[in-house]
C-alpha cells in the first residue's frame, strides 16, 4: 500500500489560511488502512481545524467527505458538487489523489494534508515499513523475495557492505541490514550458492531516471 502521514498542523493551517470554506477530502483505500487519511482522520482533521479556528477567532467552514479512491476521476466525480462549493480542497489522499483532483478540476485550489512517505506494509499495529521502491525492474526473484533496493540503505546488488554488524545497518541500530535478511532467507531456502553469481548493473532507467513514467495497454483501451 501507499503509506503516508499527516503533515504538521501548522503547515496545514498555513496552506489553507486564505480560504473561508474548505472541503477536507479523504480516501478510502491505502491511506485509510495506514490511518492517515480515511473517513475517521477526515473527522479528526475537521474537528481540529474547526476548534483551532474558533479559538483564534477565525470564521471558517469545513466540509467533510471521503471517496472510495481519490486516484480515479470516476470517484472524484461523486463529490464534484461539494468541490465546486468550496474555496479550496484539503486532500488527505496520497500525492496521487492530490494530483487527480488538480487534473480533474483545473480551477480548484487543492492542498496536501499528508506527506506521502513510501510503498510499504504494516509490520505490527501502528508500525509501517517500506518494502518497494517502484524501481520498474523487479529483482525480488533473484534475492529470495527480499528487496535489496529498498531494504539495503545503499541499494547494493552485490552486498553486504562493511557496515553490516550483528544484523543491523551502520546508519541506525533500528534498521535491519537488508543483505543479512537476504542471506538468512537464501540459507533457509538452501540457495546460498546463488550468491556466488555477480549481479550485473540493473536497468535503473526503468525507474525515475526517465522522467514521468506511464504504461499503455492497447488491449485495454476503449
Amino acid at each position: 500500500m501507499i503509506v503516508g502521514e499527516q503533515k504538521p498542523l501548522d503547515e496545514i493551517r498555513d496552506q489553507i489560511s486564505p480560504f473561508k470554506k474548505v472541503l477536507i477530502l479523504g480516501c478510502g483505500t491505502c491511506v485509510t488502512v495506514c490511518f492517515a487519511g480515511g473517513e475517521k482522520e477526515v473527522g479528526v482533521m475537521a474537528s481540529t481545524l474547526r476548534m483551532a479556528g474558533a479559538v483564534s477567532g477565525q470564521e471558517k467552514e469545513f466540509l467533510e467527505a471521503t471517496v472510495k479512491r481519490q486516484c480515479e476521476w470516476e470517484f472524484l466525480d461523486q463529490v464534484a458538487e461539494q468541490i465546486a462549493s468550496v474555496d479550496a480542497v484539503l486532500s488527505l489522499g496520497c500525492g496521487i489523489g492530490v494530483q487527480a483532483i488538480a487534473e480533474r478540476f483545473p480551477k480548484v485550489r487543492v492542498y496536501p494534508g499528508l506527506n506521502t512517505s513510501f510503498l510499504g506494509m504494516p509490520v505490527e499495529q501502528g508500525v509501517w515499513s517500506a518494502r518497494c521502491a517502484a524501481c520498474g525492474d523487479c529483482v525480488l526473484g533473484r534475492f529470495a523475495g527480499v528487496c535489496p533496493i529498498v531494504r539495503c540503505s545503499k541499494s547494493l546488488l552485490n552486498g553486504p557492505c562493511g557496515g553490516s554488524h550483528d544484523g543491523v545497518c551502520e546508519i541506525s541500530p533500528d534498521i535491519p541490514c537488508g543483505w543479512q535478511l537476504i542471506y538468512d532467507r537464501l540459507e533457509v531456502l538452501g540457495l546460498l550458492d546463488t550468491l556466488e553469481e555477480i549481479v550485473p548493473p540493473k536497468d535503473w532507467s526503468a525507474g525515475m531516471g526517465r522522467g514521468g513514467r506511464s504504461i499503455v495497454r492497447e488491449d485495454l483501451k476503449i
Binding site: K40, G43, V44, S47
Partner: peptide, 11 residues
Amino acid sequence: IDLLHILRAFE
C-alpha cells in the same frame, strides 16, 4: 476511546 470522541466532545 478514540481521538475523534474526545475532539467531538470539545467541539
